[in-house]
Design a protein around this nucleic acid. Structure first.
Lengths: 215, 215
DNA sequence: TAGTTTTTATACCAAATGGTAAAAAATAAA
DNA sequence: TTTATTTTTTACCATTTGGTATAAAAACTA
C-alpha cells in the first residue's frame, strides 16, 4: 500500500465524529449551566457515552471547556473580519456584517452563550485571547470606520461604541433568546423571526449611520 | 406571638445592615461564578461572617439567589417604566430611557450580570416573572412606540426589536465590561467612559429613529 | 438582673463530582 | 490466527459543598 499511515481509517473517522458529538453536547451543557454548573456526567449522558469514556477523549473538564470556546472563536474569526466583508459602500459592508453576526447567533446560539458566560464571569480563560487577537482586529476595524467618517460617507459616530452596539444587538438574539421568546410570545425563535430581527437591526444601524443617504 | 416589637431597635437595624452586606457579597459571587459556581463559603467569606452565620440569615442558597435577583428586578422596575419616563417628545423620552438604563449598568453591574447569567441559562428561576410582569409592560411600551410611528413622530421602526436593541446596547456595558475594557485598553470603565458610551448609544438610537428631525 | 436574640464554633453528613487505575472488549495490523 | 492497539467498562476515591444539629458565648432588650 502506498500510504504508510492512512489518515482516514475507520477508527480515526469515528473518532472525529464522536469528538465533535461530544463537543456539541458540551456546548449545550456549558451554555445552559456555565462552567461550574456543567458536569462531566451530564455531558457524557447527552453524548450517549459513559463518563469514563468521555474522560478518555477529553481527559479533564478544563480542556473540554477550552476546546468548546476554541471552536466558537474559530467560527467568529473566520466570518467576522469587518475589513474583509465584501461590499464597496459602507452601507453594503455594514449590512453584510450585521447579517453575518445575526446568522452566527442563529446557527451557533450555544457557542454564543458559552462565550457570554465566560465574558460575564470576567473572561478568566479568554482574557489573553481578547488582548492578543480581538483587540488588534478591533483597532483596524475602528480605523476603517473612522476613514468613512473622514470621507463623509457616514454620520459622525463613535466607532468603538458602534461596534459594541452592533455586537450587543446581534448577540442578544442568541444569548437572551429566552427573554425574547417570552416577550414575542413564542416558544422558540424560528427562521422568520430571525429574518425580521435581521432586517430591524440592519435598518436600525444603517439609519443611525446615515449610510443610506450618502454616497 | 405577633411582632409588636419596635421597628428600629439597634438589633433590627444591624440586622438590615448585615443582610444587605450579605446580599451585595452574594451578588458579586453570583455575578462572577454563576449560581452553581458560587459557594456559600465564599459568600460568607466576602461578607466577613462565618458560613454558619450566613445560613442563619439566609437558610439556603436558592433563597439567597432569589433575593439577589429580586433586588435587581425591583430597581429595574422602579426606574424603567418606559411610559412613565418624563418627556413630552419621543426624543426626550428615548433619551431619558437610555440614560436610565446606562446608569443602571453603571451603578449595578453585578446585579445585571446575575440577571444575564440567569437569562442565558434559560431563566429557570425568572421565567414566570418575565411572563407575568415584564411582558405586559413590554406590550404597553411597544404600543406607545407604535402610536409615535402612526403619528409620524419617528421613523417606521420595528418596536419590539427596538427595545431588544436598546436593552442589549445598554446592558452590554455591565455584562460585557471585561471585553469592552480590553478593547478600549483600560483596566476598568470609569465615569467618563460611561458618559461617552451614553452619548454614543443615545445619539445612535435617536438618529436611527429619526426622532430629532421630526417635531 | 433576667430573658431574648444574635453570633460563633464544633462536629458532622450525604450527595455530587472530577478524576484515577486497571481490566475487559473490540478492532486493526502482522 | 496471533499480536498490538484502541476503545469501553467497572470499580473506586478524595474533595467539595450545601446543609443539619447543638452548645455556648456575646449582645441586646426589658
Amino acid at each position: 500500500m502506498i500510504e504508510k499511515k492512512p489518515k482516514y481509517t475507520k477508527q480515526s473517522v469515528n473518532r472525529k465524529i464522536l469528538e465533535s458529538r461530544i463537543l456539541r453536547s458540551a456546548e449545550i451543557v456549558f451554555a445552559s449551566k456555565g462552567f461550574s454548573g456543567a458536569s462531566m456526567e451530564r455531558i457524557a449522558e447527552i453524548s450517549k457515552i459513559s463518563k469514563q469514556n468521555l474522560i478518555y477523549y477529553f481527559p479533564n473538564k478544563d480542556l473540554l471547556y477550552r476546546k468548546v470556546l476554541e471552536e466558537i472563536l474559530d467560527i467568529w474569526i473566520e466570518k467576522l473580519s469587518f475589513l474583509e466583508n465584501h461590499g464597496d459602500t459602507p452601507e453594503e459592508v455594514i449590512r453584510s456584517y450585521v447579517r453575518e453576526k445575526m446568522q452566527i447567533s442563529r446557527l451557533y446560539p450555544n457557542g454564543s452563550k458559552v462565550f457570554a458566560h465566560e465574558i460575564i464571569s470576567g473572561a478568566p480563560v479568554l482574557k489573553d485571547y481578547l488582548i492578543s487577537h480581538l483587540k488588534p482586529q478591533f483597532d483596524r476595524d475602528v480605523a476603517l470606520v473612522n476613514s468613512w467618517i473622514n470621507k463623509g460617507l457616514i454620520e459622525k459616530t463613535d466607532p468603538e461604541h458602534l461596534f459594541f452596539t452592533i455586537w450587543a444587538a446581534t448577540q442578544t438574539y442568541a444569548d437572551f433568546s429566552t427573554q425574547i421568546e417570552v416577550l414575542l410570545g413564542k416558544s422558540d425563535l424560528t427562521e422568520p423571526d430571525f429574518e425580521r430581527a435581521e432586517k430591524a437591526v440592519t435598518d436600525f444601524v444603517v439609519r443611525a449611520l446615515g449610510a443610506h443617504n450618502k454616497k
